[in-house]
Simulated scan of single mutants.
Amino acid sequence: MKKNSQISITDLLQLEAISTGPEFFRRQRVSGLLSGKHRSSLKGRGLDFSEVRKYILGDDIRNIDWKVTARTRVTHTKVFSEEKERPQLTILDLSRNTLFGSKYALKCHIVLKVAAIHGFRALKIGDRFGAILLDDLNIQIVKPSRSRQHFQAILDHAVTTCNEATSRAQDAQPQVTMEEALSRLLGIAHHDYIINIVTDASLLSEQSIEFIGMLAQSNSVMITHIIDPFDILLPEEKIPFSDTNYQIDWKIDNDSQEEYKQVYLNQLSDLEDKLAALNVPFLKLRTDKDLKHQLKEILDENYQR
């Protein structure tokens, strides 16, 4: 399969078929990707039965579980968990950090596809969906909405932004960064948002990780990391690199190949440890494998735990 530097809105709309299914994290109250209905942490007169516990003065007597009370000779009450709509925001990193792909797809194309799946799933379960589009020139914030027309406008704009970024010459320095996008997100997502950050996470700065930790204190945050085969292992040959203005040839030998691999793997391991300490799920997707198959493998592996 030949890699294409352009992506179309049709490519994204076709992903609606795979956006249905069970919750992504079965054990967690809220899922980031492919999430189901969200139960709030509040307990009250809700839709779903949660548990039975000992009666506490002030509990609604209508919720007393008389069978358990009779069996234990201690008054017990039923507790219900309420379903709660939660707005979703996805950061789409379309900066130069994702304008690369060595084989079948560019990283930015996987970014767009993952964001599309988030959006389709949010609309199906009645959540509002919004996005933050980050490229080297701008940060564009689109507020969450339940409108399908609104969602498709996000996809249209994201496709245009991605295709323009892959075809233009890159300036020496980006005008905006992920740190700025996360900082602005902190001013929006005060609590109870589902936040999905889709990027090449190996390039996240310490400041970005600090912002992610702050967001995770009162929101559900998940990172989707896009990996290309060249991130891990460069071929042992002369490789041309170009930014459309200049080109260099990099000669790779065994030693530099192994050193390159270890630096990347160590960096990734360190990142995973930091995110685990923040209780932020870390999903890895590759540019050289079918997205649908990768998601199925992740779901199957998660459900077997």
Results as ranks from 00 to 15, higher is better:
D11R: 01
I117D: 13
G32A: 12
Y246K: 15
I9K: 11
D228M: 06
S19E: 10
G58N: 03
V52H: 05
H109T: 01
K3C: 10
P281F: 08
I110R: 00
H157C: 08
S269Q: 15
K3H: 10
P229K: 10
V280H: 10
D60S: 12
D288H: 15
S145F: 05
D59R: 12
T244G: 03
S31A: 11
F282R: 12
D136V: 00
V30I: 14
R73D: 02
Q173E: 15
Q247C: 13
I64N: 00
E83I: 15
E258F: 14
M1C: 11
S202C: 09
R39D: 11
R148K: 14
L234F: 11
K84A: 05
D136E: 13
G21I: 04
D253V: 13
E210G: 03
A158L: 08
A277N: 07
V280Y: 07
L203T: 03
L186S: 04
P281L: 05
D135L: 06
P281I: 03
L215V: 02
A105G: 02
S5E: 13
T224K: 06
T10W: 05
S147I: 05
S183L: 14
S256R: 15
N219A: 10
V74P: 10
L112H: 00
H191M: 12
F49W: 11
K84C: 09
K3E: 08
L134N: 07
E16T: 06
V142F: 03
L295N: 09
L275D: 04
K84R: 14
D48N: 13
A115V: 05
H38D: 01
Y303M: 15
I117P: 04
Y55D: 05
A172I: 08
I61E: 09
I227G: 01
G130V: 09
R62A: 05
K37D: 05
K289S: 11
K124S: 10
I232R: 04
E210A: 12
A153D: 14
P235M: 05
E259K: 12
Q175S: 12
F120P: 08
D11G: 06
A189K: 06
A216C: 10
K124N: 12
F282P: 07
F25D: 09
A115D: 01
L268S: 14
L94P: 00
R305G: 07
S269N: 13
S242F: 00
A17I: 12
I194S: 05
R146L: 12
N266D: 14
